[in-house]
Amino acid sequence: MLLGYNEKYLKEKKGYFTAKEISQQPRLWRELYSILLNRKEEILNFLDPVLKIKGLKVILTGAGTSAFVGYCSEGYWRRKLGIDVEAIDTTDIVASPLNFFSKDRPTLLVSHARSGDSPESLATIQLAEKYIDEVYFLNITCNKDGKMAKSTLNMKNCLNIFMPEEANDEGFAMTSSFTCMLLTDLILPHLKEIETKKELIERLAKEAERIINEEAGNIEKISRQDYDRLIYLGSGSLKGCAYEAALKSLELTKGFVNTNSNTPLGFRH
């Protein structure tokens, strides 16, 4: 059973992968914690010297859902690391790279990508190399066999962090991939003391399991109400979550529900 439905029914309705990927998230978060713990020294050896570079700019990037990961973590990174951090879509960068890249500004480009195969992700890395004198790449991706991972494998100025294998979602609407990449962003500023975060990750996973097991029926009842417009509101880091929730609702209703997102104050205005 997944979300209260048997697998045969879900497969007939072509909803199996979506239900599976929603349900598996708590397990993947625990797996992700172990991955980051095991790679702690390798990641710190790459990131620490880069983050100490004077005048460094950090760009969090991706397209669609992967861009929204950066929207969610942008303010948190800026606050915790005390450096200039900006979330910019790869689709914007590719269209006008010189609007965002400064030749003389050392830059860390943090790319989020489920498949790592989208042309915008690949082009953004190529353009950064072309236009920035000192650039470093941190790729957070769900596909170790993707073009982004393979093309940067031997670059000395690059590190790939791979999500749990099952986070490479097969469903139309990304779920496991989004939360795993976002959780990675939120853990990285605390990587030096990651051992102390195990209990927190476990609490997150258990609460998600409770919601999936106890609240799925109530959520379904709400979704069956007669509405054709849905607006998500979120402030601060939750603004990115509002963007993502609106996109998920649009995708999973095949566009029949008109979705939008904003901040509470922006919506009020």
Rank of each mutant, 00 (worst) to 15 (best):
R79S: 15
M163L: 09
T18I: 09
G266Q: 07
K254G: 08
E7C: 06
F46T: 00
L138N: 05
K11L: 09
F101I: 06
L2M: 04
I201Y: 03
E12H: 09
R79T: 12
F17T: 08
E170G: 15
L153C: 07
I132L: 00
V110D: 01
D228P: 04
L10K: 05
T107M: 06
P264L: 02
D228S: 15
R210V: 05
S96R: 15
S34K: 14
Q25N: 10
I194E: 02
Y9W: 13
E86Y: 09
Q24R: 13
E42Y: 08
Q225H: 12
A208H: 07
V135S: 00
M163V: 06
D84Q: 11
L28T: 00
T124L: 05
M148C: 08
N154C: 07
L204F: 13
S223K: 10
N45Q: 12
L37W: 09
C180Y: 01
A208Y: 10
H269W: 12
D169A: 00
L51H: 01
L153K: 15
P49H: 02
P164L: 03
T107G: 05
I132E: 02
S249K: 11
R268Q: 12
L265D: 13
E129I: 06
D89H: 10
R114H: 01
P189Y: 08
P106F: 09
E220A: 12
P97F: 00
L182W: 07
V50H: 07
Y76I: 15
S102E: 15
K147E: 12
D169I: 00
S176Y: 04
V135G: 00
D228Q: 14
D185K: 01
A123E: 14
N168L: 10
E202N: 11
L183E: 13
S177L: 02
G146F: 01
V110H: 03
W29K: 01
E202K: 14
E193G: 06
D228Y: 11
K156R: 15
Y243K: 13
E214T: 08
F172N: 09
N160I: 07
G234H: 00
Y16F: 10
G240L: 00
E134T: 13
S118A: 12
P106C: 06
K40D: 04
P106T: 05
L28E: 04
L37I: 07
E214H: 05
I201S: 00
N262H: 06
A246M: 03
K150G: 01
L159S: 02
T152W: 04
V69H: 03
C180I: 03
I211T: 06
E199K: 15
K57Y: 04
L233I: 03
N6Q: 07
F137E: 03
K156E: 15
T91E: 10
E220G: 05
W29H: 01
L186M: 11
Q126A: 15
V94W: 01
E202F: 11
D228V: 09
D117I: 04
S223W: 10
T179P: 03
L191H: 06
V257W: 04
R39L: 06
S73N: 04
N45A: 14
T61W: 04
S261Q: 13
G255S: 06
N168F: 05
